[in-house]
């Protein structure tokens, strides 16, 4: 019982210190959090509107076509791709799925390496080359990803980015069937990366895929499984506009980086 007054004093002291930066509370305990804010005077109150309208400022002359593709993708996702992903997850153990994911990601290092070289990013090209080497050998054809554990994280670069780095403008926004949001420049980039990977035919996967279309199907299902985005997830009647902005801005940031 002797300790009690001390505890009380300590608590009071601590309490008063902790609350020094906070406004006094009402009798019912309410702290009036909005009263610590500085508000704008009358005529400057439209920053939200001003900033948000800028979001809509994306060149999209093919909007009607793009919107139809967006709805097509929405349905394809729900009726084909996501059921396929669910089936794939149900029949395949996690360790196999991560092996599949790593295997295809390892193949994707090839265009990544080429693009790092094209952008004259020596450091990144070296890192990506080292990843490719380590994961293909130690990681047994890329089924494991020992490079990440050795402190070499994946750093994807694509040809769309390379074009952007050299000043090629994004061009009109373009919703690609199945593949989703893009723009003219990035769509050309995607095609180029695909053709380059086919030409190089690393580990003979491209050749094998021609004979066994199931490899491409597996790649597609794995790809969909790896993307957490779901159509409808933004839960807004303006989802198309929001995706368009986020895609465009994210690409700008990737290129500026």
């Amino acid at each position: 019982m002797v300790e009690r007054p001390w505890l009380l004093v300590a608590a009071l002291l601590l309490g008063s210190l902790a609350q020094a930066a906070e406004p006094a509370a009402d009798a019912d305990g309410f702290k009036r959090p909005l009263e610590r804010l500085q508000f704008n005077s009358g005529h400057e109150q439209h920053e939200f509107e001003r900033a948000s309208l800028a979001i809509l400022d994306v060149r999209d002359p093919w909007e009607r076509w793009n919107r139809r593709v967006y709805h097509f993708n929405y349905r394809l996702d729900e009726w084909v791709l996501l059921p396929a992903v669910r089936g794939y997850r149900a029949v395949t153990p996690g360790v196999v799925r991560s092996g599949v994911r790593n295997f295809f990601a390892n193949l994707a290092e090839i265009p990544g390496l080429l693009n790092s070289l094209l952008q004259l990013r020596g450091r990144r090209a070296l890192d990506t080359g080292a990843r490719l080497l380590l994961n293909t050998t130690l990681g047994v054809a890329g089924l494991w990803d020992p490079a990440s554990r050795m402190g070499l994280p994946r750093q994807g670069e694509d040809f769309g980015q390379t074009l952007g780095v050299y000043g090629v403008p994004a061009g009109p926004y373009l919703m690609l069937p199945v593949l989703g949001p893009s723009n003219l420049r990035d769509a050309v980039g995607q095609l180029t990366d695909f053709l380059a990977a086919n030409r190089i035919d690393y580990l003979n996967v491209a050749t094998a895929s021609d004979a066994h279309p199931e490899i491409s199907a597996l790649k597609a299902v794995d790809k969909r499984d790896s993307i957490p985005f779901r159509y409808g997830q933004l839960n807004s009647p303006f989802e198309y506009n929001k995706i368009r902005y986020v895609y465009t801005r994210a690409r700008q940031l990737q290129i500026e980086e």
Partner: peptide, 10 residues
């Protein structure tokens, strides 16, 4: 489905 909605979003 394909109606541009930006004017209404604004």
């Amino acid at each position: 489905e394909d109606t541009p909605l930006a004017p209404f979003f604004i």
